[in-house]
């Protein structure tokens, strides 16, 4: 048996008198979809504790459930810490990281190729005007440039230059219900993100069309990325094809795999 496997099977042992199926069911209730349930199975195994003590201090499923509850508490703390007027630090052109790293859950050659000619941004949910937007129409919107730090959940960071239209201006333009709780983004490759409305309305949250003064290249999310310098990198969706204003949290690719939902920085 592989060491990892051995640890896992050890961790499967449960507290006497506790039905493991019920525990999983309880934990799954906290999690809206199968991806999260899948995550629960292996997420939090106490490798080191099991190894050092030779026994299981904490049942794996209940540990995962407790950790996800704390993660949700951390969402609320971060929402309170979030200052809607506090700007992310900006940098001079000379500080831009070159080459700016490509990052995704797939290799660069598998990045989606979106046809700018036929591209339509779908706008839905709690908005007055649900007319889809062509790239030409989007490019005609007033644009601003920001040079800010992209911070990855892995720890590394890189400074980039992004140009586009403030998301809050666009939301106002389409008559979005700004009292709604969330904005949900859909991406061409099936990636998705849900963000909180206060962050969507932050002055630096941007619908990005250009990187380093050039049309956004494929590797950085052509034709449109949502740049959010107050959130971790994975909360900055690329290849965005749909935007929905909602009162329901539809989660997101990494959020459903155990990364903290708010992920503010």
């Amino acid at each position: 048996m592989e060491p990892e496997e051995r640890l896992m099977s050890k961790a499967r042992k449960v507290i006497p008198g506790v039905d493991p199926k019920l525990l999983i069911k309880d934990a799954a209730k906290l999690l809206p979809n199968p991806a999260r349930r899948l995550f629960l199975r292996g997420a939090t195994s106490l490798g080191a504790i099991t190894l050092l003590t030779g026994c299981d201090i904490v049942d794996e499923e209940s540990a995962a459930k407790a950790l996800l509850t704390i993660s949700r508490f951390n969402d609320r703390v971060q929402a309170l810490l979030f200052n809607p007027d506090k700007l992310a630090p900006t940098y001079p052109e000379s500080a831009i990281t070159r080459p700016f790293p490509f990052n995704g859950y797939y290799p660069e050659e598998d990045a989606p190729e979106v046809d700018g000619e036929t591209y339509m941004l779908e706008v839905g949910g709690l908005v007055e005007n649900k007319k889809p937007w062509t790239l030409e129409e989007l490019y005609a919107l007033p644009q601003e440039k920001q040079i800010t730090r992209h911070v990855c959940v892995e720890g590394w960071s890189a400074i980039g230059s992004w140009t586009g239209t403030p998301l809050r201006d666009f939301l106002k333009r389409v008559g979005a219900d700004l009292t709604a709780k969330y904005v949900w983004f859909q991406c061409a490759e099936g990636y998705s993100n849900t963000i909180d409305m206060p962050t969507a309305l932050h002055p630096q949250t941007q619908m990005t069309f250009r990187f380093d003064n050039e049309i956004l290249p494929r590797k950085y999310g052509f034709p449109m990325k949502i740049r959010i310098p107050t959130k971790l990198g994975f909360k900055n969706p690329k290849y965005v094809i749909g935007m929905h204003v909602l009162n329901q949290d539809l989660g997101g690719y990494w959020e459903d795999r155990g990364y903290n939902w708010f992920s503010g920085i």
Partner: peptide, 13 residues
Amino acid sequence: IGDALDGLPGALL
């Protein structure tokens, strides 16, 4: 401590 995938989500939790 923290497993799953590359171990990062669990470790961060």
